[in-house]
Design a protein around this nucleic acid. Sequence first.
DNA 1: TAGTGGTCTAGACCACGGG
DNA 2: CCGTGGTCTAGACCACTAT
Lengths: 240, 240
Amino acid sequence: MEPIYLRIFKDIETKILSGDWRPGARIPKEHDLVNDYGCSRMTVSKALTALVERGLVVRKRKTGSFVASPQIDRTVMDIQDIGTEATLAGYEHRYEILTRKIETLGPVEAAQLHGTTGAEILRIQCLHIVDGKPTAIERRIILLDTVPLARNESFATVPPAKWLLSQVPWSRAKHVIRAVSADATTARILQIERGEPCLSLIRQTWQNDRMVTYVEITHPGDRFQFAGVFHPAEKRASRR
Amino acid sequence: MEPIYLRIFKDIETKILSGDWRPGARIPKEHDLVNDYGCSRMTVSKALTALVERGLVVRKRKTGSFVASPQIDRTVMDIQDIGTEATLAGYEHRYEILTRKIETLGPVEAAQLHGTTGAEILRIQCLHIVDGKPTAIERRIILLDTVPLARNESFATVPPAKWLLSQVPWSRAKHVIRAVSADATTARILQIERGEPCLSLIRQTWQNDRMVTYVEITHPGDRFQFAGVFHPAEKRASRR
DNA sequence: TAGTGGTCTAGACCACGGG
DNA sequence: CCGTGGTCTAGACCACTAT
């Protein structure tokens, strides 16, 4: 027999992960959940505590409990949004859209991303400039089937990463970090020498087994690093 | 007034982090803690649940609760022990000690590591070979003040990372990941061209504000990457 | 002030697993 | 078997904060 608190936990988790309950939405008050499930308030509380710990829920006295805002990377390392990060670190940040076009996914890429050949995608390239220096190239694919609203979004004012966070309620992500050589194009855009080492972060994101986005962010090796302080189970990380 | 469960949590946490209770040690049974703190069993249980969640404690029915084994990186990414990882991935792994000598920490390095000039250290260089190919150079400093037993350890059979995990009960760690160019020495040892991109992981570890070790692990960019799948708050990560 | 979550109790029954 | 943790109750009082 499955524990009641786990059933409550899973029910709410499902509602949130599926996007049924959007970030900021109100979660039934504890008293109501007690009635719904016919259990004691401690049991409800245990489920909600676990949801808070999982980062899906925030609780506020007097006002109630709410669906938290998605923070895919909080568990790993905070590379979610170069702009926000740079600002926090006290640097000026801006970005330019280099290209933006709608295509269909070719067979090679489809295989590489475990996606579907022919799926309609939005392909974007951005250059991020921090403190006046080119700091990252962002090469991104957004699956228009999963995020149809992207079709009409120019990304002129809101960076793709930030915009996506507001559109897709909660996600699963895969990260790969590599060291690569700058190819000719990359070198020119980042204003470095060809062959210089670059730090490459690839992130692929899904919601409910539907791919949301695939992005490769390439940083000059000498202008970027990932850093984090951790004591076990305190998950904050930062980058410089 | 601090909640009782938090007080219990902190008391036990302190005992474990300080090394007072070693990994595997028995934690007082819930009934005893109920008596010690004069509270109900639910309150004790709440504290223990939080300790499990933090990774400091494991609980077993009938047998009791115990101090967990330290797993510094479980919260971040599993790069703790190249040998174990390689074996898990199905590759053959061996390593060679290149140098091993006792020195004192010079002023430059001391400043860099926020350590004390003149502190006695053990300096080790290892080469890790996975699947027959040089895969990582490990350049490590161990503070002999903090880990005196290292003085007599040859590391001929047990890699430094693994040995340290067994010696230092629990730690705080800082990680930095960078892309760097292979210098002449590194290139020769890793059998790559000079200037080729390498992935560098630096990890500095403390126990109770005393530095334990500082290590830089340098991988050829084309033979190594960090990868992880995460859905928020499920912290498993792996590397290939 | 009133509504909400935060904590706590003093029991209870059950599930698991070592002897 | 029986000791241990796993879960649960039906209340209770308190702390915080929006109104």
